[in-house]
Simulated assay, not measured.
Amino acid sequence: MSILGSRRDLTGQVAVVTGAARGVGELLARKLSARGARVALLGLEPEQLREVADSLPGESACWHADVTDTAVMERTAREVVECFGAVDVVVANAGVAAGGPFAESDDATWRRVIEVNLIGSTVTCRAFLPALLASKGYFLQIASLAALTPAPLMTAYCASKSGVEAFAHSLRAELGYRGVRVGVGYLSWTDTDMVRGADEDDVMREMRRTLPWPTNRTYPLEPAVDRLVAGIERRSAHVYGQWWLRGMQPVRGHLPSIIGTFGAREMRRFAPRLADGTRRGLVGAGGAADERTRTPAADG
Rank of each mutant, 00 (worst) to 15 (best):
N93L: 03
A61I: 04
D106Q: 08
A40R: 13
R38P: 13
R22V: 01
R38M: 14
A37G: 13
C62Y: 12
R50H: 08
Q13C: 12
V91T: 05
L41N: 12
D66Q: 02
E82I: 01
G100D: 06
R75H: 11
E45S: 15
P57T: 11
G19D: 00
A34H: 13
A86H: 10
P101W: 02
D69G: 11
T18H: 12
G23E: 11
V96R: 06
E45A: 15
L41S: 03
E51S: 15
V39P: 10
E74G: 12
V87N: 05
G99Y: 00
G58T: 12
V14S: 04
F102G: 00
E45N: 15
D69P: 06
E104K: 10
L42C: 12
A97N: 03
L32V: 11
S33K: 03
R30K: 14
G43Q: 15
V87Y: 02
A37M: 11
L41C: 13
A94Y: 02
D88R: 04
E47R: 15
A21Q: 07
V24I: 15
D66L: 09
R75K: 14
S60V: 04
S105K: 05
D66F: 00
Q13S: 11
N93R: 06
H64T: 14
A92L: 09
C83F: 10
E79G: 03
E104A: 10
L44S: 15
E26N: 07
V67K: 12
G99T: 08
A65K: 03
A86F: 00
G23W: 12
V80Q: 08
L49D: 10
S55T: 09
G95P: 04
C62N: 07
A98Q: 05
F102E: 02
A92N: 13
A20S: 11
L28I: 12
V91R: 04
A98D: 06
G25A: 12
D66T: 08
R78K: 12
A15N: 02
G25E: 09
R35W: 09
M73W: 14
L42N: 13
V81M: 06
P101L: 05
V81L: 09
V87Q: 04
M73C: 13
R78V: 09
G36W: 10
R78Q: 13
E79M: 05
F102A: 07
G25F: 09
A40Y: 05
P57R: 11
A37I: 13
G43R: 14
A29H: 07
A71K: 14
F102M: 07
V67T: 14
G19A: 01
T70P: 04
L41P: 08
A37S: 15
L42T: 10
C83I: 00
V17N: 09
V91F: 05
E51L: 15
A61Y: 05
F84Y: 01
A34T: 13
E79H: 09
A15Q: 01
A71M: 10
Q13V: 07
E59N: 06
V96P: 08
V24P: 01
D106W: 00
